[in-house]
Design a protein around this nucleic acid. Structure first.
Length: 454
RNA sequence: GUGAUUGUAGCUCAGUUGGUUAGAGCGCUGGAUUGUGGUUCCAGAGGUCGUGGGUUCGACCCCCAUCAUUCACCCCA
């Protein structure tokens, strides 16, 4: 046998069953997006590296898939450069395109480029795959789908509310119990300010984010390693350990960071969001979580993360507000807020919990058995009629043995089989067999179609 | 990038202290049943044991290298 074929690490093929289930997820997400007034866009799989580089931090740059220039890409490189073996230096010379890493940055690029054609606030959704040169592991792929919703060009916190409503609706439609965690970058900045470590904000938030994983001691250890002074760490303790319900948490926080203007602003924002939430009907848990600190450099306000309550999995949806994302592309002072549903992780969770509905795998409803030339000629017009009536149907392409044809219907979960041989042809009818019950009866086409339309 | 794990039939996996011809279940093909599937019975096809070296009279098994896999860390959907 020839060598076994394979696909790149962290990528996947999708079988028909998997595709039907994935589409079930995409369709429900899409429907909700549309319902809230968002319009679809798409952007290319590849972007210029200049638009991608530097947007995701140092780590992010490493995880970008780069595309080699076409043609003789080494021709313009000098021998000295080659001999230098500086991969980073060289890569910018031989590669100027890369696969998109997320949908947010391409969206920002899109907005800047098409600003004249857009009406703000602009609400868009985008469902496409993204690529990261990460090491794959559980719930982590190198090619995966994100389902983004963003609204750009509006500072209103109504948008944050709307996103929570969308989260709530999507996951309740998918029958998943989730908790939505909210934090605010301004509060985090305020905290860093109060303890006099404003410039260490990223280190601090990254460390605090690991509370659940490595515990209080671990967090403190990491803070020490990041050269945060002991007094500052001591000051942080009540904040890391903050407990109570959302309003209680906000109240304590307010006292602790009373001297930080930006911190108070963040608290005011959170209070407003929670106030909005009381005015609408949101079923899922919404929880203020200070340990939530997405690493993305561009969030400036609210930060969101959604986790399944019943499955062990990283976040299945995340996002936040970014005040100046388009600034890097020369369009300052445009604020946006958005979230991204991780379709592949959502799939894994639903699969794990066995919550895929049967109808998510609906395919062919009716199979015509093929007995030979004469019978084919008899069935073809009938098949046409059935299809015109909107019933997914097919005829077995060869006059194979009954056993084979029935087996085909069976393994494809086709619920009904139409059999037409000499006696049926004579009577101008078809035998319709119910594959589940085994019952069968001779009927005319119209009767058969009638049965399906019920 | 760091640390582990596993690699045997299409799939999931057995395989004794190193010993002759490497097994099972599922799936597949054919038959029992040439107009009746999902159940049952019978038969059959299918493997350079990831790859390359080494040790040995002899290697699926031991050693080294390499590639691939999965999991964790970093980071993240």
């Amino acid at each position: 046998m020839a060598q076994k074929p394979s696909i790149p690490k962290g990528t996947r093929d999708f079988t028909p069953t998997e595709m039907n289930r994935r589409n079930y997820i995409f369709d429900t997400i899409k429907a909700v997006f549309r319902k809230y007034g968002y319009s679809p866009i798409e952007t290319p799989a590849m972007e210029n590296l200049s638009t991608l580089l530097g947007k995701y931090g140092e780590e992010g740059d490493k995880l970008l898939f780069k595309i080699l220039n076409s043609g003789d890409y080494l021709s313009k490189i000098s021998d000295e450069e080659l001999a230098g073996k500086d991969s980073n230096q060289l890569s910018t010379r031989i590669s100027e395109k890369g696969l998109r890493y997320d949908l947010t940055v391409p969206f920002a690029r899109f907005v800047v480029q098409h600003r004249n054609q857009l009406t703000f606030p602009f609400k868009r959704f985008q469902i496409q795959n993204v690529w990261r040169a990460d090491r794959p592991q559980k719930g982590r792929y190198r090619e995966f789908f994100q389902c983004d919703v963003d609204v750009i060009g509006s500072n209103s916190l109504l948008n944050e509310l709307e996103l929570v409503q969308i989260i709530d609706e999507v996951f309740s439609l998918l029958s998943l119990k989730v908790v939505t965690k909210i934090n605010n970058r301004k509060i985090l900045s305020g905290i860093a300010e109060i303890i006099g470590q404003a410039e260490k904000i990223v280190d601090i938030t990254v460390a605090i984010d690991k509370l659940e994983k490595i515990g209080l001691e671990g967090v403190n250890k990491e803070l020490t390693e990041k050269e945060i002074p002991k007094e500052a760490i001591d000051k942080l303790q009540p904040i890391i350990k903050l407990a109570g319900n959302n309003t209680e948490k906000l109240a304590t926080l307010k006292e602790v960071i009373a001297d930080s203007e930006i911190g108070l602003k963040g608290i005011a924002e959170m209070e407003q969001i929670f106030k909005y939430l009381q005015q609408v009907d949101v079923a899922c848990e919404v929880e203020l979580d200070l340990t939530l600190a997405r690493g993305l450099n561009y969030y400036t306000g609210a930060i969101f993360e959604v986790k399944s309550k019943d499955a062990e999995m990283g976040s299945i949806c995340g996002g936040g507000r970014y005040d100046d994302l388009t600034g890097i592309f020369g369009m300052p002072d445009v604020s946006g807020v958005g979230i991204s549903f991780g379709a592949d992780r959502i799939y894994d969770v639903i699969e794990q919990l066995k919550l895929f509905p049967e109808k998510a795998i609906a395919g062919t409803q009716l199979l015509f058995v093929n007995f030979g030339e004469k019978e084919e000629a008899y069935c073809l017009p009938l098949l046409e009629k059935v299809r015109k009536a909107g019933i997914s149907s097919e005829i077995y392409p060869d006059s194979a043995k009954m056993k084979k044809q029935m087996g085909y219907a069976d393994s494809n979960h086709i619920p009904f089989v139409a059999i037409a041989g000499a006696s049926e042809m004579e009577a101008g009818k078809i035998t319709l067999k119910n594959m589940e019950s085994g019952e069968q009866e001779m009927v005319v086409v119209e009767e058969m179609i009638e049965k399906f339309s019920r």
